[in-house]
Amino acid sequence: MIIKRKPLNLAERLYLPAIIGGFKVTLRHLLKKKVTMQYPEEKWVVPEGYRGAPYLVKDQEGNTKCVSCQLCEFVCPPKAIKITPPGPAGQLADRANAEKMPKEFEINMLRCIFCGFCQEVCPEEAIFLQKDYSLTGTSRAEMIYNKEKLLALGGVHAGVQKWKHKADEAKEQESFPVKA
């Protein structure tokens, strides 16, 4: 389609309406209330659902929720997560029945793009994108958060304790007449 350009009239060719229009707009904004936030003093109210830094959470009994299934490591687009599984002789999970937990869990916050895939994929509700957005460090090594740090920052997330539920259920069945 060919769009016909309307020829400019004399006033327009002198740019006068444009000058006046531009002047009006800029003057209006010049006198407007400013929107800048004085950042370190004034802080932003982080909205619900904000995707900040991903941290590991503990359950209401203070146990590690992560079972080292490594799905987050797999799904992580920038490969920011590195999990060291416990191995056959590793430490058992601090929750009965869950059998394993990570030996080490590292998130490279320099790589992390805060997409939230890890939270979405986690079958244990063990990792959540929280409200931290201002992550600083003085070296690259410092920006790789280890398991201890992630758990300390993550806090507690009370949820369904499925492993505990399973353990309780199994215990009830121990009194059943037929035994394994």
Binding site: Q70, L71, F74, P85, G87, P88, E99, K100
Partner: peptide, 12 residues
């Protein structure tokens, strides 16, 4: 396998 137990997820 006890040898491979909790060593690595197979999809990696």
């Amino acid at each position: 396998s006890k040898d491979f137990r909790f060593q690595m997820r197979v999809w990696f």
